[in-house]
């Protein structure tokens, strides 16, 4: 599903964010990217979502070489990826329903179908019945759930998350990770950047470890929890 071939990303003249990175993640797989802050986790995800382009090498997503995607084609690539952010990036002047519906509105899904699918997505994250509320009135964990509902409502084959539990306490973090695990079970490829090593270990999924932009480890721990 995701394939990096000798990818390097350099910001400015001397800051190397990623160096000669190569790996592949299969369809339906769930993997974590970890490493200290500044190791290149976010940059890696940005390359997948076409928020950045590599300086060298190529990134393939779902068989498509992203280097060949022109500017006009970028939105279509992004519509095939569900994105979850650390700071959730919900629109605070709109209701929960409108936030979750946004990807479907963008994709031009008919109204009745939007209502049905938004409710299904909110049901999955345990927020059914809260559609009319404003995101600001929700707790941090609930806001992140709305962000996840928005990421999955269009049923993208790939879900990426940048520190989705960065602002949450351990209990909530575990719940959120469990939620991502459930999406993997229904066939979604999930790629999560996180530095919460204890939590990652409990999940028992594949882990890619970055250090100063280089891939230094690629392992699968045994689940402990």
């Amino acid at each position: 599903m995701i394939r990096f071939e000798h990818v390097s990303k350099r910001y400015g003249p001397r800051h190397d964010a990623l160096v000669d990175l190569s790996f592949a993640i299969d369809a339906g797989e769930m993997a974590f990217i970890t490493g200290h802050s500044g190791a290149g986790k976010s940059t890696l995800l940005k390359l997948v979502a076409l928020l950045e382009r590599p300086t060298r090498g190529q990134v393939l997503v779902n068989g498509q070489n992203l280097n060949q995607v022109r500017r006009r084609g970028v939105p279509r690539v992004r519509r095939g990826i569900g994105m979850v952010f650390q700071d959730h990036r919900l629109l605070l002047d709109r209701s929960v329903f409108d936030n979750v519906a946004l990807p479907l509105v963008i994709a031009g899904v008919p109204r009745e179908e939007i209502a049905r699918r938004v409710r299904a997505a909110l049901d999955k994250v345990g927020l059914l019945g809260r559609e009319a509320e404003a995101p600001a009135t929700l707790s941090t964990g609930e806001q992140q759930r709305v962000g996840i509902a928005r990421a999955i409502v269009a049923k993208p084959p790939l879900l990426i998350a940048d520190e989705p539990t960065g602002n949450l306490d351990p209990q909530l973090s575990a719940e959120i990770m469990q939620l991502f695990g459930e999406f993997q079970q229904v066939g979604t490829t999930v790629l999560i950047a996180s530095h919460d090593l204890a939590l990652i270990k409990r999940m028992g999924k594949r882990v890619l470890v970055l250090d100063h932009g280089r891939l230094i480890d690629d392992y699968r721990p045994h689940a402990t929890g």
Binding site: R70, R72, G73, P75, R76, R79, G80, P103, L104, I106, A107, G108, V109, E113, A154, K155, P156, P157
Partner: peptide, 15 residues
Amino acid sequence: ANRMKPAAVAPAAAP
């Protein structure tokens, strides 16, 4: 069809 008209509709979201 999507490849020919890149900005048309989302492949994943489209029924």
